[in-house]
Design a protein around this nucleic acid. Structure first.
Lengths: 210, 210
DNA sequence: TAGATTGTTAATCGATTAACAATC
DNA sequence: TAGATTGTTAATCGATTAACAATC
C-alpha cells in the first residue's frame, strides 16, 4: 500500500486507457475483474496492471480481484475527471470547432467557457451556447474568469502572440498548434501533434512493405 | 553503419519530431548542425540523437556534424513522406472534415481521394474538390481505387460495420474513433485518442496542484 | 480450509546516457 | 596537423516481467 510519491509518466499515460476499458466493463454490468482477465482484454501483462495500480495504493483484494466500479471511480479521481475544469479554445478553425462541439468533455467535467479567434467573421458564432470572441479580449477574460485549461488550435504563428497572455493564468495547455510548448513549473502541457501521428503510421507502413 | 533490422518503436515515434525541427532549421537557412546543438534545441541528449540516427545507418560526418538538408531528406524518406499515399476519410463529422480540410497533408504526399459518411445530408458536400459519398459505396470504392490509409473519424458504434470492408484493402488505419483497433499482420494502425490526451493533461494538473 | 489473486520483491529486459576511439 | 564531432561500445538507469509470500 505504498502511496504515490513520483509516479512515472508512462504509468500516467496508461491510466486513460484503463479508464476506457473499465467504463466498458461497467456498462456491460461486470462487477469484478482480475488483473489476468483484464490483461487478456487489453493485451498487456497482468504484472504491469498490478504494478500500475499499486503506484496509487492498490485497489484490489487478494483472492477476489478488483471491483470494477470502485476501480473505475478511483482512476477517474486520479485523472481529475468530474472536477469541473474550465477550458477555453483559442483558434476556432475546423479543429477548434470540432473540439468545441464534442459533447463528451462536458459529461466528464470539462466545460468550455470561452472561444477565441481573430477572424472577425467568426465573432459571435456560437457552439453550444458559447460565442466566439476576439483574441484581443482574451487577457481580460482570463482576469475575470477562472480558466484551468487553454486549448490551442491556432496556426503556429499566432502562438507567440497569445502565450504571454495565457501563462500564469491557466494550469494547463492542450496544444494542437504546430509550435511546441515546453513544460515549465506550474504549467502542465500536452502537445498533440496530429501530423506526427500520421507520419508514424506512414513510417510503419513503409517498414511493413519491405 | 549498422543498417536497420528492427528499429524500436520509441525511436520511430521520435522521427517526426526530428523532421519538424530539421524543417525549421532548413527554412532558417542553416546548413549544418551537430548533435550537441540539436540536443539543446530539442531538449534531449546528444547521445540519443546519434543513437537514433544510427539505427538507420548514420547520416553524419565526424568533425562536421550533420548536413541539415541531407538529414531532413533522409528522415523524410524513412517516414515515407512524398511517397504519394492515398487516403480516405470515413466519418465526415467536424473532426473528419477538419482533417479533410488540412492543407499540409497534400504537400507531404498524403492525398485524400475519398470521403464517406452515412448521413445523407452530407452526400455531395465537397472539401477540396472531393465529395462525400455514402458509406455503402465504400467497398466498391476500395475495389476500384488504390487506397493506402483509411482515416476513421466516425462514432465507435460504426467501426465494426466498416472494418470488414476495409481490412485487406488498405495498408494502414489512422483511427480517431473511440473503438481501439488492434494491429494485425499486414495492417499498420495508429490509434489516436484525443480524450486520453486531455485526461493525461488533467491528471498532470491534479498532481501539480498537490 | 483450499483456491484464487493480489501486493510486492527480485530478475530481466530494453532504453538511455556516458565514454571514447575512429575519422573527417 | 589539431580540433571537432561522429559512430559505436560499454555502463547506467528505468521499466517490464516473473515469482511468490501474504491474505481474502
Amino acid at each position: 500500500m505504498a502511496v504515490d510519491k513520483k509516479v512515472s509518466s508512462v504509468v500516467i499515460r496508461r491510466l486513460p486507457r484503463y479508464y476506457r476499458y473499465l467504463g466498458d466493463l461497467l456498462s456491460a454490468g461486470i462487477v469484478r475483474i482480475s488483473s489476468k482477465e483484464l490483461s487478456r482484454m487489453m493485451n498487456v501483462t497482468a504484472s504491469q496492471i498490478r504494478q500500475d495500480f499499486n503506484c496509487f495504493g492498490g485497489f484490489g483484494q487478494q483472492g477476489y480481484g478488483y471491483n470494477v466500479e470502485y476501480l473505475y471511480n478511483e482512476i477517474s479521481e486520479i485523472l481529475g475527471i468530474h472536477k469541473g475544469r474550465n477550458m477555453i479554445i483559442v483558434g476556432t478553425g475546423k479543429l477548434g470547432m470540432s473540439i468545441a462541439g464534442y459533447g463528451n468533455f462536458k459529461k466528464r467535467g470539462f466545460n468550455i467557457i470561452g472561444l477565441f479567434d481573430h477572424n472577425p467573421d467568426l465573432y459571435g458564432v456560437s457552439v453550444n451556447g458559447i460565442e466566439v470572441m476576439p483574441v484581443t479580449e482574451l487577457e481580460k477574460f482570463l482576469d475575470t474568469h477562472s480558466v484551468d485549461i487553454a486549448v490551442l488550435t491556432m496556426p503556429k504563428e499566432s502562438v507567440q502572440e497569445v502565450l504571454p497572455a495565457i501563462k500564469g493564468k491557466v494550469k494547463g495547455i492542450w496544444n494542437f498548434s504546430h509550435k511546441e510548448i515546453p513544460t515549465e513549473k506550474g504549467l502542465a502541457v500536452e502537445n498533440v501533434h496530429l501530423s506526427d501521428s500520421l507520419m508514424t503510421l506512414s513510417c510503419k507502413i513503409g517498414r511493413m512493405e519491405k
